[in-house]
Write a protein that binds this DNA or RNA. Sequence first.
DNA 1: GCGTGTGAACCTCTTCACAGCG
DNA 2: CGCTGTGAAGAGGTTCACACGC
Lengths: 212, 212
Amino acid sequence: MGKTVPSRRVSERTIRRLSHYARCLRLSWAKGEPVLTSGRLAEACSISSAAVRKDLAIFGDFGKKGSGYDVPTLLRSIETILGVGDPPAVVIVGAGNIGLALLRSGLEGTGYRYREILDSDSSKIGRIVCDLRVRPLGEMGAIVRELGEVIAVLAVTHGQGQETLDRIVEAGCRAVLSFNLEPLAVPEGVFLRYMELSTELDILTHALRSDR
Amino acid sequence: MGKTVPSRRVSERTIRRLSHYARCLRLSWAKGEPVLTSGRLAEACSISSAAVRKDLAIFGDFGKKGSGYDVPTLLRSIETILGVGDPPAVVIVGAGNIGLALLRSGLEGTGYRYREILDSDSSKIGRIVCDLRVRPLGEMGAIVRELGEVIAVLAVTHGQGQETLDRIVEAGCRAVLSFNLEPLAVPEGVFLRYMELSTELDILTHALRSDR
DNA sequence: GCGTGTGAACCTCTTCACAGCG
DNA sequence: CGCTGTGAAGAGGTTCACACGC
């Protein structure tokens, strides 16, 4: 045992896999399985058992030789590493097709919750969806101050991505998950990721087409 | 010039970047820019210019030394490589929250189109959403025969993922994009990918928390 | 025996730097 | 001169194989 904070910076791929492990551990725990081996975790995630052990060993000696990993202990450890024990607030920016669709489909079972939905179009403001009132984009600053660290889910009209992004970064938001497919730029210290359904479809199309 | 089919298998990361390049090229073309350099493409994708050149050089000598890449030519070439010139049909499986949300938010500007939406719950069948009638899951086989190669977007009730997946694979579907977060297994020759909003949120949360 | 943790080998991807062509 | 294409170097990630502890 020991460390939970590693010396070297951890790769994004490892963090992504930790998220997968956490998901599998919650599933196992729900099924009443108290212990899991690297082999079973690996199978669930379609990777090698050595990769699982390497990932986990970065943060400490969580396993018991001969038996495996204690599910609730490992789950709590991973949640601490990821910082999802007390997850940040999630705010949707854009109350159009995608924003509303996201809100309606919810974040059930993820630990996160949509806390606000904003738009800059005054005709959309005030509308109530899933118990949330669409608020003006200008209130982002107040929301960040109220909710603390916030993840913005960007889903605005095509072409307004950068302009909107600038405003929410200006308002103090430091993490953005964009459904807008335009190339976006953020200043140092702000984290930006994309959710790209069309790219995933492209990858599948390529796989289908190049496989005879 | 020459090859468009490389000898060695191309990595998924390269394919993903090609999808990004295609997006940027469409944007440039729409803006009337006839030529693009690796540097400008790289900037838009937040990677190095050398990476862009390496990716493109795998498939042929598309660039003109001294000037850059001809936008429409390169775009057509990438579309051929990805196989998205004539994109496969996309079928939503599951007419619950997420399935309907996906259908309503559409695939505008991606080249793809939702062609069918299926569900196994008889109470949902027959309902009309966005001009599509919810059809029984049992018709998947007929749909594959009718539409040819199909990408299924899996968005069913949590816990029914594997069972449903088995049925659509059985029906002849060879590519699946899953919004279900359960670990899923597919036979050899079937391509499976996940769309994981919660993992992206986890990665952002970790970035926020580990950055002071 | 079983399964973890880990150095070492291996492999893949990225960056560098520059020759070569327009 | 500008920008591509590319070998060489470097970095990073994955797999192997085995010692160690339960």
